[in-house]
Structure formats: structure tokens, C-alpha cells
Design a protein around this nucleic acid. Structure first.
Lengths: 264, 264
DNA sequence: CGACATCTTGAGCTGGCTCAAGCGTAGTGG
DNA sequence: CCACTACGCTTGAGCCAGCTCAAGATGTCG
């Protein structure tokens, strides 16, 4: 579950998220490297089932996922929980702001790389490409979030589940963590329920239904996609077409200078 | 429904959104003004019930709401619609990206101010405060969106409705458009349904229920809040406490230099 | 005045919920 | 090495929040 930083990834130029990931990856290889500006990326480990930070925390550091799975969540007064988003290797953990607007918990042991927010802001100012890349990442997150919103608002249980599985299929593929149409998925049905706004029982039945339709098998910490076209169709293919590409014309040409920075 | 740019707003210093609003307001007063960098803010009008832009559009301009109500929405293949967000005066319309990820439609006649994305990017680079403010705006939008996500995932119809009304109460108040605990609300029950993931019929019953509880009266293009504490309690006060403040320590001290720019 | 949009209410239906029970597996401590 | 516990998965049964269908009222605009 480590970000592969092999030359094989060079073909994926033009994708900011991926370029940035390579960048992060390279930075994280050595314990600290320069980005034109002095940014020290530290490595931090958080064990499984712990919070990385809590709602309301003031955070000195900006963070990226290096290994493992985490999730953003919020709690309601009476104990109800809603999971906003999953975080996989390469994802920006944030927060975008010095004050965390949500909790962040781990599903597995997690390795983060982090840098003081102030350093980051400076580098951001002095390196337009970095700023653009970050903007792109934010835009992508916004897009994912609104896509999820559409799911909860207007899709039924099966469609929601299919949509989530396709989204993660795509995200895992982008970071080279898709193997033979399957990917690691350390997510219990309870967590899934809190993500999709369903009950655990109904999540179970929905997964069974997808399995019986030969679309995907979810369990034992993995998702095995049997029929990605079918899954996308259930998810609402028209919609996902716009949603998943990270891209964007205006950013495709960005090449992060620090991606070429030598590892220490 | 015009952004008031009266001195009375000076007391609200420290709130980026509001500072920025005043800034936009001032800029829009004259047809063009300088922001240290040459940014020409043009005014554009879009009539009621029209799209400002469509999903997939490549947009030359970055836009802000000056007057009127609009909304971001997405469509599913079979015609289902989901409304992601409402846009009120002072809001950044975006898109954050050159390619629109959603439709943007108007609920009333709308006046926008807009500037070419390229100009904006330059100004953004040369004016750290502007960049920070934009970042804050994005973070706020992200927060609103995840709050809405929690609503759709884990709140029932009444809670969702109350939450939305409180959110808008707060946003309208921030831009000085709250009058005697009521605000303009040019939103049909159908639009409301597509926002909250409910049916029109159930929206109607939910509004009746809130009315009968003496919490809020929604209709005739207005929301009249009768009992804001009660409404917040139904919405889940604990949660909203974190959600609504735009603020954030790290940004509170930002004072946009161009906010002081003289009108033409 | 006709056409259309919006709101309202009743009546019956259903997708997803709750409650409850059973099962397999992974620790954990004696 | 074997209880014992805890957690996650699975399935059945009954229920209900919110849905769909239907019809009428009201307003509005050309």
C-alpha cells in the first residue's frame, strides 16, 4: 500500500493529481527536500482506528496521505455519524483551513507527510504551479463532494453503492493501487453505512445484490470489480463521465518544478 | 436585493467573506477599478430562470454574485436533478476551474461581476491577501457542502429543512440581507425538494410542520423565522455551531488592501 | 380567458429502517 | 489450549418516513 514512484508513471503526465502525487512521493522518499522554497516534509504515522485530528482542532501542519486509508467524518449531537469522504494515498488531508471542520480518523495504519502551514503558504505564493495544483486538488475534492451529495439526494441504495465503488475504483487506479480490477478496501459495512446514509443491514443487502448481479464482490478487506461497465451503468454512467476525470484543460500543462527535485 | 456597501458594515471586520463582499461591492460600483493588478470587473445580467453556464462549459471568466439568487445543480441521466447549493449576493460563483462541473441556474434576475480567469490568476499571485481570501472562501464552501452532505446522510426531513433555513438565515445576515428575522427566498417547493433530496409533497408537509411548530414561515418568496433558537435546535445546534462561522483564526486578520480602493 | 405553474391535501404504497437472533473469526487472558 | 469476549457479517420479520398518484385550489401571465 505504498505509492509507487516508478518511471512507469511518467506516462500519466498532464494529470495534476498524479503529478502532485509523484511529487509528494519523491519528497517523502527522502525525509526532507527543497521545493525551491524550504519546505520540510515530515513523516508521521498514525495507528489504525485513531483520529488524526478532531473537529475544531487548530492545526499547524498541512498533510498528505502517503500510505493507508483514512476518512473525514462529522458527528451529530445524538451520536449519529456521517462520513464525508475517504482518503487514500496521495490525497490531500488538509485541512484547507487552520481550523479543522471535521474529524479525521484512520481505517488502517496510516503514514502521512506533513509540513507547517506557514511554510506551505510561502511556497504556494512563490510557486504558481504549486498554487495551481492545489487549486486543482481543491476543485476535484469539491467535485467529488458534490457528486456524493447528488448520490445521497437522488440515488437509491444500489446506485449509491455502485457509484462509490466506481469512484474509488477510479481513484485507486489513478494512484496505481488497482490490481487486476480489484483494490484494497479496509472499510466495514458500518463505515459504509455511515458514508452512504444507509443502515448496516441495508448495506449488507445492497452488497449482496451487487454480488448476485455479478457486478462487484465486496468483502475481506477488498473490492473485486467483476463488471465495471455494468457497475458504472448502475451508478449512472452519464454522470460519472464528468465527475471522475481530475484533469482540466487549464491545468493539464502544469508541470510541477519540484517534481524534478532530487531525492535526498 | 442589492449589496449594501454602507459604513455600517465596517463593524464586521475580520470576516473574510464579508470583507471580500465589500470589496466586490466597491469594485462593482465603478465599472472597473484596480486591485493593485489590472482586473476589470465587468457587470453581467442574467434573467430569471436561465442558466448562467452549463456543465462541461469552458469558462473564460470568474464570477461573483452581485444581486439575485442562483443555484448550482447537476442532472442525472433520467432527468432527476439535484441542487448542490444556493448562491446569494456576495457568493463566489466560480467555477474554481476552467471547466464547469455543474450547471448554474438563476432563480431571479441576477447581476454578476466577472473578470477573465487569467487576470484573476495573476492578481491572485501578486496579492497574497486575495489568495488567502479565496482560499478561505473555498474552505467555507467545502464546509457548507459537507454540512449539507451530513444532512442528506443522517438527518430526517424536518431536520434537513431547519438546517437549510438556518444556514441561509446566517448567510443572508452576513451580507446584510436579513430584515427583522426574515429574508427573501425565491425558491419553489420543487427546488427545495431537489435540494434536500425529498419529494415536493413531503417538502410541503415539512414546511407546514415547521409553521405549526411556530418555528418558521416559508412562502410568498420569503422565509420568516419565528424562533431561531428552536429552529437551530431542530437543525442540530451542536453541529451548526461549528459549521456556520466563516472566520478561521488564521485568516481573521487578513485585510484586503483593495477593499480600501477608491470607487471610480 | 386559457394555459401553466405552484401549492395543498388525501390515500395508499414501498424502500429502507429497526429489532432480533445466529454465525464465524480474531484476539485475550487464565 | 481452551473458554470468553468482541467485532463484523448475515438473514428474517415487521414497521414507518417519505414516496407516488390523484385531485383540487390559487395565482399569474400573455
Amino acid at each position: 500500500m505504498t505509492i509507487p514512484a516508478t518511471p512507469g508513471h511518467a506516462e500519466m503526465a498532464g494529470n495534476v493529481n498524479r503529478d502532485f502525487l509523484r511529487h509528494i512521493s519523491k519528497l517523502a522518499t527522502g525525509s526532507e527536500t527543497e521545493i525551491g522554497m524550504p519546505i520540510r516534509l515530515e513523516t508521521r504515522r498514525v495507528p489504525k482506528n485513531h483520529d488524526v485530528f478532531s473537529e475544531g482542532d487548530t492545526l499547524r501542519d498541512v498533510m498528505f496521505m502517503r500510505e493507508g486509508w483514512a476518512y473525514r467524518y462529522r458527528l451529530l449531537g445524538d451520536g449519529r455519524r456521517h462520513i464525508v469522504n475517504f482518503l487514500i494515498p496521495g490525497d490531500f488531508v488538509g485541512p484547507y483551513f487552520a481550523t479543522a471542520a471535521h474529524f479525521c480518523g484512520t481505517l488502517t495504519d496510516v503514514t502521512l507527510c506533513q509540513a507547517p502551514r506557514s511554510d506551505f503558504t510561502n511556497a504556494n505564493r512563490d510557486c504558481p504551479a504549486l498554487a495551481t495544483a492545489l487549486e486543482a486538488i481543491m476543485a476535484t475534492e469539491y467535485r467529488l463532494l458534490s457528486e456524493r451529495l447528488v448520490s445521497l439526494g437522488r440515488r437509491n441504495a444500489k446506485e449509491r453503492m455502485a457509484h462509490l465503488l466506481v469512484e474509488l475504483y477510479d481513484r485507486m487506479r489513478r494512484v496505481g493501487l488497482l490490481y487486476d480490477n480489484s483494490y484494497e478496501f479496509p472499510v466495514t459495512q458500518e463505515v459504509l453505512a455511515d458514508t452512504l446514509g444507509l443502515s448496516v443491514v441495508h448495506v449488507n443487502r445492497t452488497l449482496r445484490s451487487l454480488r448476485e448481479d455479478g457486478l462487484a464482490i465486496v468483502g475481506f478487506g477488498r473490492v473485486c470489480v467483476r463488471n465495471i461497465e455494468g457497475l458504472m451503468e448502475v451508478a449512472g454512467a452519464d454522470d460519472t463521465a464528468h465527475a471522475f476525470p481530475v484533469h482540466a484543460a487549464g491545468v493539464a500543462s502544469v508541470s510541477l518544478p519540484m517534481a524534478a527535485a532530487p531525492a535526498a
